[in-house]
């Protein structure tokens, strides 16, 4: 399966700013429907409202695990961009605080690299729906980057 050459695709995405092909190569990201929007030099990630991502059907609300998976993948793509596509970060740990119910609507996420070491990077992720000032979840992750 190594014929995919994911690292080369990551480098291309980081150069062009178009992450759609890189996202489509990852089945999980494709299944939950992650999109990446480039606003100037900043990356914003979007998770369109999608039936298959629903957890609690009565609210209805997006499954908390999907919100976490979306934020984890956003952090990974953000790191790929921050490192010019030189490495494919591997998750070490992930911690999420849920602040509000993630309702059945589009969800957005933005990331910040707080510390980029030689071996490990620390990334903070915020997710929101109505507006950035009202986050539905905040998370942080460590990735192995060497």
């Amino acid at each position: 399966m190594s014929t995919l050459n994911l690292t080369a695709k990551a480098r291309e995405a980081a150069t062009s700013g178009d992450y759609s092909e890189l996202i489509s190569l990852v089945p999980y990201a494709k299944m939950i429907g992650i999109e990446c929007i480039k606003l100037g030099d900043e990356l914003v990630f979007r998770l369109p409202a999608q039936d298959g991502n629903i957890g609690n059907p009565t609210l209805p609300a997006i499954h908390g695990g999907v919100i976490a998976g979306f934020m984890e993948h956003a952090a990974q793509l953000h790191l790929i961009a921050a490192m010019g596509g030189q490495h494919l970060p591997k998750i070490i740990d992930f911690s999420i605080d849920y602040l509000r119910a993630g309702l059945y609507r589009d969800t957005y996420a933005q990331c910040q690299v707080w510390r980029q070491g030689r071996r490990v990077a620390n990334v903070a992720i915020n997710a929101w729906q109505t507006g950035q000032a009202e986050p539905i979840a905040t998370a942080r992750a460590h990735f192995k980057v060497d």
């Binding site: 990852v26 089945p27 999980y28 990201a29 299944m31 499954h63 695990g65 979306f70 993948h73």
Partner: peptide, 27 residues
Amino acid sequence: SDSIVGDPETGVVHGGAITSLMDTTCG
């Protein structure tokens, strides 16, 4: 399943699918 793969080069499952499993299991 193929649809929850996070690393298409190795076939390793995405952390998000494991998070969904564990959020559900704990809940």
